[in-house]
Amino acid sequence: MTETVLRYAAFTDPDRADAAAGGNPAGIVLHASGLGDAAMQAIAAEVGYAETAFVTEPAVDGDPRHSRLRFFSPVAEVPFCGHATVATAVALAGRDGTGTVTFETNVGAITITTRATDAGTTASFTSVDPRAAILDPGVLGTLLGLLGVTAEALHPDYPPRLAYAGNWHPVIVFADQAGFDAFTFDPAAMRALMDAQGWAGTVTTLVPTGAAEFEARNLFPVGTITEDPATGSAAASVGGYLRELGLVAPPARVVIRQGRHVGRPSLLLVDVPAVGGIVVSGTAVDIA
């Protein structure tokens, strides 16, 4: 691997003394205009993180704050990745200064704003317009079977859905913390289901922990990874899901904590406007 790869953790929890040990690691290649698909895939596989972001065009139409970004997991290209978007924006802010930038992605243009705070550099991206769809009952039954639970384990106020804000995520909400903490799954079987359904993102499971607060486990079996420590695209999808079903009254802020089950505690802040894209915010730190 000859290209320079930066390594940042996104959605770290600034209230933790060991913040850099949390969040979701992402690789970043800021100079990828000369790389083909096979080279980017090889780099992502060698890095081994859930995703690596590649800046394939650093100045779209000559604008230095307008870049083209692609994302690769260790095994395939991913249409959109929230944590790698945040990580790349923070890395660029360190080089070029904070402010607003636009990333052209495979799902459309993403606007992201960075700012300096007492907790470090924070980035906020606005997703594409979210939408939700019914989760086929047969597919839901298969998914619950892989988790080793029945429909009785789910929260009656939060019906299962497919939610989209750049990637499609099945959203499953547990009724209680014990059931949420206890479920297990076979990574290979889960990956087979995800591939069969075309779910490029994560399987999103949640449990309510307070008013407009949730803990999340996002299942993403790829390589040695089974669960994602922090998932920005899923957080945006959850915001759209909550708005679509009338479970929050916009404008609303939703707090999502994730990563405890894989030893990398993370914090994602989700702002849900009355219309349009969902805004997801978090910090990112250099972990190289």
Rank of each mutant, 00 (worst) to 15 (best):
residue 234 A to K: 02
residue 101 V to I: 15
residue 205 T to R: 01
residue 9 A to G: 11
residue 50 A to G: 11
residue 94 G to H: 15
residue 46 E to I: 05
residue 122 T to F: 03
residue 130 P to D: 12
residue 206 L to M: 12
residue 186 D to G: 00
residue 39 A to W: 00
residue 46 E to N: 09
residue 117 T to A: 10
residue 39 A to Q: 15
residue 248 V to W: 03
residue 184 T to V: 10
residue 71 F to Y: 15
residue 246 G to E: 07
residue 14 P to T: 11
residue 283 T to R: 11
residue 43 I to W: 00
residue 69 L to P: 01
residue 255 V to L: 15
residue 189 A to D: 13
residue 114 T to H: 08
residue 93 A to M: 08
residue 114 T to F: 07
residue 38 A to C: 00
residue 6 L to G: 03
residue 47 V to Q: 13
residue 59 A to I: 07
residue 197 Q to H: 06
residue 53 A to T: 07
residue 261 H to A: 14
residue 88 T to I: 08
residue 134 I to D: 12
residue 174 F to L: 13
residue 261 H to V: 05
residue 252 A to G: 03
residue 146 L to M: 05
residue 81 C to H: 05
residue 225 I to K: 08
residue 78 V to S: 02
residue 236 A to F: 01
residue 46 E to W: 01
residue 165 A to H: 04
residue 56 T to H: 02
residue 219 L to K: 00
residue 53 A to R: 01
residue 262 V to G: 04
residue 187 P to C: 03
residue 114 T to K: 09
residue 210 G to N: 09
residue 281 S to K: 07
residue 232 G to E: 07
residue 103 F to K: 07
residue 119 A to H: 14
residue 209 T to L: 06
residue 62 G to N: 06
residue 201 G to Q: 05
residue 177 Q to C: 02
residue 203 V to R: 00
residue 98 T to L: 02
residue 200 A to H: 12
residue 132 A to W: 00
residue 267 L to A: 07
residue 81 C to M: 08
residue 120 G to H: 12
residue 16 R to K: 11
residue 139 V to R: 15
residue 1 M to Q: 12
residue 78 V to G: 01
residue 101 V to S: 08
residue 136 D to T: 09
residue 271 D to R: 10
residue 189 A to W: 01
residue 112 I to A: 02
residue 57 E to S: 13
residue 190 M to S: 04
residue 186 D to H: 01
residue 81 C to Y: 03
residue 149 V to G: 05
residue 179 G to L: 07
residue 163 A to E: 09
residue 260 R to Q: 13
residue 248 V to F: 03
residue 195 D to T: 10
residue 235 A to T: 05
residue 188 A to Q: 14
residue 163 A to C: 13
residue 259 G to V: 06
residue 277 G to A: 08
residue 129 D to L: 12
residue 99 G to K: 09
residue 25 P to Q: 11
residue 91 A to M: 01
residue 16 R to F: 06
residue 5 V to W: 06
residue 3 E to T: 15
residue 243 R to K: 07
residue 28 I to A: 01
residue 168 W to Y: 10
residue 106 N to T: 14
residue 247 L to I: 12
residue 119 A to K: 12
residue 100 T to D: 13
residue 74 P to F: 06
residue 243 R to C: 04
residue 58 P to Y: 02
residue 85 T to K: 04
residue 199 W to P: 00
residue 118 D to L: 14
residue 278 I to A: 08
residue 152 E to Y: 02
residue 103 F to T: 05
residue 84 A to I: 08
residue 251 P to K: 10
residue 17 A to G: 15
residue 208 P to V: 06
residue 276 G to V: 11
residue 247 L to D: 10
residue 55 V to F: 00
residue 90 V to K: 04
residue 279 V to G: 00
residue 178 A to Q: 15
residue 94 G to F: 05
residue 234 A to C: 11
residue 222 V to S: 01
residue 168 W to H: 02
residue 116 A to C: 04
residue 137 P to R: 11
residue 113 T to S: 14
residue 99 G to M: 11
residue 56 T to P: 03
residue 7 R to W: 05
residue 57 E to M: 04
residue 82 G to S: 11
residue 263 G to A: 09
residue 109 A to I: 00
residue 220 F to Q: 01
residue 44 A to G: 04
residue 96 D to R: 08
residue 44 A to M: 03
residue 281 S to D: 10
residue 200 A to K: 10
residue 88 T to A: 07
residue 268 L to Y: 02
residue 276 G to H: 11
